[in-house]
Design a protein around this nucleic acid. Structure first.
Length: 543
RNA sequence: CGGGGCGUAGCGCAGCCUGGUUAGCGCGCCUGAUUUGGGAUCAGGAGGUCGGAGGUUCGAAUCCUCUCGCCCCGACCA
């Protein structure tokens, strides 16, 4: 958790002198979005700049050599609108997220459980704000049987209509609340610290692979506490856990903050989030943590007897992080050549590419490669030996680059002879990223050092990019100019109303992403209302 | 739901305006040979109800009508 603090200290320092001229510009369209990878998964990719035969140079290779389409390595579209098939390599990224978080949840005293996919419709209606927030995007189950239809197809049997429709969970506060009311009797039952790994469905009108899909995977933590202070502490603790994961595992320098009333979770007293900047300067809410007050406790009768034998309502929290984080990791680090995975998350941390010409060479190289592989495994590296004999070494280099594998180990006849290997790093392109003649005996240590360096390097690059694209303005004119120009995060003093926020959203498509934690120091003038205030808001266009 | 666009081989597309042998091209896929330290080359091959239905015509991927689906922009959202 210490590194979270460091990350935020760095953030504060950098954003003060972030306007360095010549710093990296936000392109309107992230390269990944245009060509190589995930975000364009369901789009047709146009390689023509003016509709005709001119290939944009950087996309030429990807356009001409899509032997294995890197986009489809991760996920692909499905017969169901807005839903995707997550393929093994993409799912491995989710598994890395899942494992990294689950470990942290357990370390903070939480246990896993599972609640039903279906929620009685009446449950959703019990918390007024909650219904308003979710009613518009619910899938509803109304029948439990199919019969042959008039045209030979199947239709729901009218005889098999459910008395009460079931809602496919868009989130589980209500059904978990009903369990909690049974589980909690006494102050001795508290705090109740539960997490569930599940799928949820939100009938979004507009979907994007990983970033917003109709069905998605997530974890939702739900906790009940005796006091407001404890519940708020829990809310912030889990926000810290998310930030710790994002920064140290995913190498994404997120900003922790409180959401504005307009962006708050339906039914929450306060919502906190981690906000990340994507490669195109847009913000992405990568995880949220809510203090729910006694709203759900009252709706679902979650009460306990305190030491004085007096009934009290619990204060509850909920917090969630989804497969959207997979998209965040891809978008935050990817470049024109494809993915760049942070080593901590990478399903394959190092890939060995053997190089040979004729058969006797092949045997020697493979022998050496197997030895190196064993050494790397012994050093705790997730390593793969690419034994394919139907593609060239050069093809393999590019193939694994596209897939974002952090370290490549090249082994050819010359390396066998010198009992050495060549190391290449994904984050430094071309020959500069290669180290020649690493003794085989030291390969474990060398690769581990490289992985640590790459992990830090990706976080550093992402942080520098974010800070270079975080700016302050003091007038609405300047704000609008910036949003339509370079984009990125805009840090301002803010004393506006909810309606002011709506107006700004309407006029600029930018929203308050959060009131960043620890940014209240120093009074200033609100860029919109001109009032003096100590409150600082972070605006951006968001996914 | 409003505005735009697109459905032709596994993927990306041309052909349609101006109807006419057996519907093409690139990539991928299969076989063989030569290759292999940064996306190999050559030769041969497989693969299509041209989204669907109806109509016009001697003849429809092409023209007309209807329909289904998808994508982009907008309203909504993690």
């Amino acid at each position: 958790m210490r590194q979270v603090e460091i990350g935020h200290a760095m953030m504060r320092q950098r954003s003060r002198n972030a306007q360095a001229p010549g710093s990296a510009r936000v392109s309107r369209l992230h390269p990944l979005e245009r060509a190589a990878s995930i975000p364009c998964l369901f789009q047709k990719v146009r390689f023509f700049d003016d509709g005709r035969e001119d290939y944009a140079p950087q996309r030429r290779l990807l356009a001409m050599v899509p032997r294995r389409d890197s986009r489809r390595e991760l996920a692909e579209s499905s017969p169901v609108r807005g839903c995707m098939v997550i393929r093994p390599y993409g799912f491995a990224l989710w598994e890395a997220i899942r494992d990294g978080l689950d470990r942290r949840f357990k370390a903070t005293g939480h246990v896993n459980a599972y609640f039903p996919l279906f929620i009685p419709m009446s449950y959703l209606a019990r918390e007024a704000e909650h219904v308003d927030g979710f009613a518009k995007e619910c899938a509803v189950v109304t029948h439990h049987r199919l019969i042959a239809g008039p045209d030979g197809g199947l239709v729901p049997d009218p005889e098999a209509k459910l008395e009460e429709p079931l809602v496919v969970r868009p989130t589980s506060e209500t059904i978990i609340g009903s369990s909690f009311s049974n589980w909690v009797q006494s102050y001795r039952d508290l705090p109740l610290l539960i997490n569930q790994w599940a799928n949820v469905v939100r009938w979004e009108l507009r979907t994007r692979p990983f970033l917003r899909t109709t069905e998605f995977l997530w974890q939702e933590g739900h906790t009940a506490h005796a006091t407001e202070a404890e519940a708020v502490e829990e809310t912030l603790r889990m926000l810290d856990v998310y930030a710790d994961f994002a920064i140290n595992d995913a190498a994404i320098p997120v900003i922790k903050g409180r959401k504005s009333a307009r962006e708050r979770f339906a039914g929450a007293v306060d919502t906190y989030a981690i906000e990340a900047m994507m490669g195109n300067g847009w913000a992405l809410q990568a995880g949220t943590s809510h203090y729910l007050g006694t709203n759900f406790a009252k709706a679902f009768d979650i009460q306990y007897l305190d030491r004085e034998n007096i009934k009290q309502y619990c204060h509850t929290t909920s917090w969630g992080l989804s497969t959207r984080m997979v998209g965040a990791a891809i978008m935050a680090h990817g470049d024109d050549q494809g993915l760049r995975l942070p080593p901590v998350m990478a399903p394959i941390q190092a890939v060995i590419v053997p190089i040979w010409r004729k058969d006797p060479e092949r045997v020697l190289v493979m022998e050496h490669a197997a030895k190196v592989k064993a050494a790397l495994e012994a050093a705790g590296v997730r390593v793969k030996l690419d034994t394919r004999d139907d593609v060239s070494p050069g093809y393999k280099f590019n193939d694994w680059e596209m897939r974002g594998v952090p370290v490549r180990v090249e082994i050819g006849p010359r390396d066998v002879e010198g009992d050495a290997v060549v190391l290449g790093r994904r984050d430094v392109p071309g020959k500069e990223g290669k180290q020649f003649g690493i003794p085989a005996a030291q390969v474990g240590e060398a690769v581990c050092n490289l992985l640590v360096e790459i992990q830090a390097g990706l976080l550093r690059q992402a942080t520098e990019f974010r800070d270079a694209n975080t700016r302050s303005v003091s007038s609405y004119d300047a704000f609008r100019q910036l949003i339509d120009g370079d984009g990125g995060f805009i840090r301002v003093h803010w004393a506006g109303s909810d309606e002011d926020e709506d107006t700004i959203k309407e006029e600029t498509k930018a929203t308050i992403r959060c009131f960043p934690e620890g940014a209240e120091e120093g009074e200033g003038v609100c860029f919109y209302t001109g009032k003096r205030t100590t409150q600082v808001a972070l605006f951006a266009r968001a996914y």
